[in-house]
């Protein structure tokens, strides 16, 4: 049973996986509530261009991927609030197309399909000491950043206009947040793969939204579901020799299904719509 932990590549995989499992849904809560859930997909494609550039130049590609993703994230933020305000998804589509176009050219130049493949679908066995050195500190910075700005991010996600009126520096917060998103996406490519990142941004949060009764609970449950998905996925991938990205995502789909069931069960037990003072039902 514990054989899985005797391999150093699995130890590294679990360490990085758990950091990703915590941080991706943490950022994902705010992203989904801002209706930007597909940003992960967009930034992963752009980050892929950074990866391909790194491989082409023969250097460690993760820092380049982070830099390219940050520039793209700031581009999305700019487009979202200027040329395409009210059409957030259009800014995502534009940056996605640019990133993918660039990535395609750079991949063909890099001429190393195996390395690019590992960033597209993730590969636990390829997590290196170098990856740990960058993922652990940046993961901690992101978690700390969300902790410090938690209430501000919450207000901006709830109602950007009202937050502005209350003196929240909305523009600055959006920029800081987008930089965090870009970092999270670029870091996660190594383990779950660029094509699957948006799933880890969306699925644990989608499950938490079915169950949670407050914002704090949503954040906590999203992270819990993220961590469970990663650990379950890694164990399954090890024993059944499957791609870890796929098993992690399917584990989070399974948790989402359980959340639907839980909600249906809870609804059956307390049939009520709007809360009426006299008939207040205690959920706890």
């Amino acid at each position: 049973m514990w054989e899985i932990f005797s391999y150093s590549f699995m130890q590294r995989g679990f360490l990085v996986g758990n950091i990703i499992g915590l941080v991706v849904p943490l950022i994902g809560v705010f992203l989904n509530l801002k209706r930007l859930s597909l940003i992960g997909h967009t930034l992963a494609h752009v980050a892929l261009a950074g990866v391909a550039l790194g491989i082409f130049l023969g250097i460690y590609p993760v820092p380049l991927a982070i830099m390219v993703a940050v520039v793209a994230a700031l581009g999305i933020e700019k487009l979202r609030h200027s040329a395409y305000s009210g059409y957030a998804e259009l800014s995502l589509a534009i940056i996605l197309a640019m990133g993918l176009g660039l990535a395609t050219i750079l991949i063909s130049l890099a001429d190393s399909n195996v390395a690019v493949y590992s960033y597209l679908f993730g590969s636990i066995t390829l997590v290196t000491r170098q990856d740990l050195m960058i993922i652990i500190p940046l993961g901690a910075v992101i978690a700390l950043g969300v902790g410090i700005f938690y209430n501000g991010f919450f207000f901006v996600a709830f109602n950007e206009e009202e937050a502005k009126l209350s003196g929240v520096p909305v523009k600055l917060f959006n920029i800081i947040f987008m930089i965090m998103v870009a970092m999270v996406v670029a870091l996660s490519m190594r383990i779950i793969g660029g094509l699957l990142i948006s799933s880890l941004i969306v699925l644990p949060v989608a499950a938490a939204l079915q169950v949670a009764r407050s914002f704090r609970q949503t954040v906590f449950l999203s992270m819990l579901f993220g961590v469970i998905s990663v650990n379950l996925g890694l164990v399954l991938s090890f024993y059944w020799d499957l791609a870890p990205g796929g098993t992690i995502i399917l584990a989070s789909v399974f948790i989402l299904l359980l959340a639907f069931l839980f909600k249906a069960f809870r609804k059956m037990r307390s049939p009520k719509g709007m809360i009426i003072r006299e008939e207040k039902v205690d959920y706890e």
């Binding site: 410090i148 209430n151 709830f158 009202e162 209350s166 914002f215 704090r216």
Partner: peptide, 29 residues
């Protein structure tokens, strides 16, 4: 526009009220 928000937003009444204390929360919000 105060009521122009996502009505399935997962926040409690207390959390919504608390958001307005942003200016008084200090550096660590």
């Amino acid at each position: 526009n105060v009521r122009d928000f996502n009505h399935s937003f997962p926040a409690t009444a207390g959390e919504i009220v608390g958001a307005n204390l942003y200016q008084e929360m200090g550096f660590v919000k």
